[in-house]
């Protein structure tokens, strides 16, 4: 097991180094280059020369890359072009909002997806199964920003069940502890603030959950169908074990491995979806930050840090998922 962990960690490091090199090349090849991005097109040659020297762009490319890596490792991403604040601060402010949204979406996707996939498999070929297949196909075919507008239109304009945008109502007094508004409300016992934040969270989370939900239902269904035909399930049924025991210990435990892998892989889809969902609901997280750093004049320092952060989150989550196999499936531990 230890060897597996070490090998995976090494792979992770290699991936991140490769990515940093790509980002470095990417930055150098942006239209007009980073100097123009910082100064604008109409800068004087003197100012350009000054900046080129200040940024170290007159040095050999390998030296530049070394310095670039040094800055990355010390967490120095420079300042945002838009606001002038340090990039780490800008991202730090937006990070909890997206994590809150993504976590809520994932809870919905897993909480609905696994039971639905299981039921679809057990009732294979029946109405519930066919409906869930149709639902998953629709889920992956619908542009999620359109779904977002649709939900927003129905639930905030026609029936006023949910607020149309933002993370919390104006006038609600919430204390910022962790940046996760629902959690903050619970921690500080401001339950009205927690409720209000949760109320704001539901529609965006539902929107963001559609694609992971569809994928999880499909994988769970396929995986449960595989397990259902195994001899040990037949044996368990023949032994007269209770339905609940068979479902939990014999079917789900064995069927869940591919599902867990899928959940790890969905982190990428969640981040892509967050960019779109946050724009629809004016959420103010990383997705909004990505949007702002491309549409309102390109904010390359922020974009660069966001790319690295997204990849880091993805590889770390998937590493954790791989490690979690050991807990779910003892067979992995032996290997």
């Amino acid at each position: 097991m230890l060897r597996v962990i070490v090998r995976r960690l090494l792979q992770l490091v290699v991936t991140l180094i490769g990515l940093s090199a790509l980002v470095f090349i990417w930055l150098r090849n942006l239209p007009g280059g980073p100097v123009e991005a910082l100064l604008g097109e109409r800068a004087t040659p003197e100012r350009r020369a000054l900046l080129i020297k200040a940024l170290g762009y007159d040095q050999p490319i390998l030296v530049q890359y070394g310095k670039f890596m040094q800055r990355l490792l010390t967490g120095d991403f420079g300042n945002s072009i838009r606001s002038g604040d340090p990039v780490t601060e800008v991202i730090g402010r937006a990070f909890p909002a997206t994590i809150e949204l993504a976590a809520a979406a994932m809870i919905i996707a897993i909480g609905l997806g696994v039971p639905l996939g299981y039921l679809a498999a057990r009732h294979r070929g029946r109405l519930l199964d066919n409906m869930s297949i149709a639902g998953t196909l629709l889920g992956i075919s619908i542009p999620i920003f359109f779904l977002g507008y649709l939900l927003k239109d129905v639930f905030t304009q026609n029936i006023h069940w949910f607020p149309p945008s933002g993370r919390i109502s104006t006038g609600v007094d919430n204390t910022d502890v962790t940046g996760f508004f629902v959690l903050d409300g619970l921690l500080t016992r401001e339950f009205d603030a927690a409720g209000d934040a949760l109320w704001h969270l539901i529609l965006p989370a539902l929107t963001l959950a559609t694609i992971p939900l569809a994928v999880i239902v499909r994988i769970t269904r396929a995986s449960v169908l595989d397990v259902l035909n195994e001899d040990y399930v037949r044996t368990a049924e023949a032994k007269g074990l209770r339905h609940k025991t068979i479902r939990g210990r014999h079917i789900l435990r064995n069927a869940l491995l591919p599902v867990v892998t899928t959940i790890g892989l969905q982190t990428g889809a969640l981040l892509s979806g967050a960019v779109l969902t946050e724009r629809v609901y004016n959420w103010g997280g990383l997705g909004t930050l990505i949007y702002n750093s491309i549409s309102g004049g390109r904010d390359y320092p922020v974009l660069q840090a966001l790319i690295l952060l997204a990849a880091l989150v993805f590889v770390v989550v998937n590493l954790l998922v791989d490690l979690s196999y050991a807990f779910i499936d003892p067979r992995v531990r032996v290997r």
Partner: peptide, 24 residues
């Protein structure tokens, strides 16, 4: 394959956005 790993580690939309940003 390490190269594809790097590309797959990026969310698809973010990768597409970065690529579009490269065009003037």
């Amino acid at each position: 394959m390490r190269f594809t790993d790097v590309m797959l580690a990026l969310p698809a939309l973010l990768l597409a956005i970065s690529l579009v940003a490269m065009a003037s």
